[in-house]
Amino acid sequence: MARDFSINRLPGFASVAILTFFLLYLPIFTLVVFSFNEAASMSRWEGFSLKWYEAAFQNRQVRDVSIRSLWLAATAASFATILATLAALGTTRTSKFKGQTMIYALINQPLMVPEIVTGVALLIFFAAIKVQTGYTGMGYLVAAHTAFCIPFAYLPIRARLETMDNTLEIAAADLYAGPIKTFVHITLPLLLPGIFAGLMLGFVISLDAVVITEFVKSAGQDTLPTYMLGQLRRVVTPEMNAIATLFLLLSVLAVTIFFVLSRKRA
């Protein structure tokens, strides 16, 4: 009988589960613990201290790259969310058209193409533009991150739209609302949790993007992850642990918001 079967009664279930969580969280746990280490060592615990956090906050470079990262993630995620919202509306709130599946696949390009390939392609492509225009600003990073974030923002928005009963929009039309009023009063408010979820996911993805950023950035455009990568090639101090822990905290926060919003029912 169905209720007699339960996966957690299988022999070894508990051990496998514990081992999995161990593998998942032990390294991160270690990293977090050693960010509070008094010593400069990564292997010996000498007592609790916040001095590495202090050092990180006083490091001018860390502040700069953090601000750049946050600004880039916010900008790119915003653009990506707007575009993803339009794309989701176009693929769910219109009558079926030829090539719809194709468009769905195309939107998901960044999920299919290996990041390193995209990185190299962008490097070559942007290099050509840089030569032509002489522009070397943040625009390239914003464009690359936006494109990269679109499918991640698209997924929760589309999921939300698909579970949303479109008789609500028909009912609004029946009650004398034209297409724009229907969108403003019905579709948009109901879609909002999906849009915020998309925004959060896009934000985390952009914050996290190392490979693409590494290829696209010009001199002096390091983001937090590329800066950390650069530092780690030299000497490793617990200051990195402190930065990484803060970075982790930010990501966890954004992902939590994403989960809460995408699980919220209409």
Binding site: L168, A171, I186
Partner: peptide
């Protein structure tokens, strides 16, 4: 004429009340 321009209103089978 679209539904928003007809002097007709509908009671839907699943009610279709605006949840928000």
């Amino acid at each position: 004429l679209g539904p928003n321009r007809r002097p007709v209103n509908t009671v839907f089978q699943n009610y279709a009340l605006f949840p928000h």
